[in-house]
């Protein structure tokens, strides 16, 4: 047996196709697949949402309620807000829940609609209020979210989101790439949620006007928010990533509506909250 030295001419042990190219192709396919699956599921969720029985809504509320509790010091303020809410409920025509208001100790101005009709206002938002009309505008906005089933929609989206993330992590050992892709889907999807917010603003305004016969206070809340977030709005492209339309835009839209529908802006009913200092430490 004799040795003959021969050279290999090509490397057969590497699959054809450059690494850079297959990376870009992979990303594009991944995005396409994730987007398609996500939006298909979302369309399904949206179609099913109006059929969700009240029982499910109540059960969901049960999950969140232990985390949403108004500190006992703020009970009287909470009841005052609920008083305003009940005066508005006469004109509410959406699905009926046991509406309840809670004040959450938080250093950010925000209002949220939780399943089961639990409207949550942050303490900072409550303290900034100067009139009943402003409060009514906020409550009207949240009531419209219930009218549009947005609280369930948001939850449905969250579940779809988490599902995608779980599948990705299981298949790839939590490679960070998928997180970026899923997040980018979220960014595109925010466009949709901004539309919902805009609708909620419009309904909120209608609630306010039918309740008080004028649109005073509708814009004030947003002006306060704008002041609060003045710094943020200077960042370019922020609108693209923000779940709510930029506040300036919302004010403009509301003013336009008030002008075009010929609503009057009259004296507001003064109503202020001075939340007492809490004795216990906030749950963290």
């Amino acid at each position: 047996m004799r040795f003959v030295a021969r050279e290999l001419t090509e490397n057969v042990n590497i699959s054809p196709g450059g690494e850079g190219k297959s990376f870009i192709r992979g990303i594009l396919i991944l995005c396409a697949v994730f987007f398609a699956v996500y939006f298909a599921l979302i369309v399904m969720v949206d179609a099913l949402i109006s059929y969700v029985p009240e029982k499910v809504d109540r059960a969901l509320a049960g999950i969140f309620s232990p985390y949403i509790q108004t500190p006992s010091e703020w009970e009287t303020d909470r009841q005052r807000i609920e008083g305003v809410l009940s005066s508005m409920l006469e004109r509410y025509d959406g699905p009926v829940y046991d509406f309840r208001v809670d004040i959450l100790d938080h250093d950010e101005m925000n209002a949220l609609a939780f399943p089961g009709g639990n409207i949550v206002l942050t303490s900072k938002l409550v303290e900034s209020l100067e009139s009943e009309n402003e409060l009514a505008m906020i409550l009207g906005h949240e009531l419209s979210h219930y009218r549009q089933h947005d609280h369930l929609r948001g939850l449905g989206r969250m579940i779809v989101f988490m599902g995608l993330m779980t599948v990705w992590s299981a298949g790839t050992n939590s490679n960070p790439l998928g997180q970026y892709v899923v997040n980018s889907i979220g960014t595109f999807d925010l466009k949709y949620s901004r539309k919902q917010e805009r609708l909620a603003d419009e309904y909120g305004l209608k609630f306010l006007v039918t309740r008080y016969q004028h649109a005073g206070g509708a814009v004030c809340v947003f002006e306060k928010l704008q002041e609060e977030y003045a710094a943020q709005e200077k960042i370019p492209f922020l609108q693209f990533f923000s779940s709510h339309p930029l506040i300036g835009e919302r004010i403009r839209h509301l003013n336009e509506l008030i002008g075009s529908r010929g609503y009057e802006v009259r004296q507001q009913l003064p109503l202020t909250f001075d939340l007492p200092e809490r004795s216990e430490l906030p749950p963290s």
Partner: peptide
């Protein structure tokens, strides 16, 4: 066997879908 040419080797790394 009349001639030999040394080692030849083939390898691959593959994965199944998720």
């Amino acid at each position: 066997i009349v001639e030999h040419y040394g080692i030849v080797q083939g390898s691959t790394v593959r994965a199944k879908h998720v």
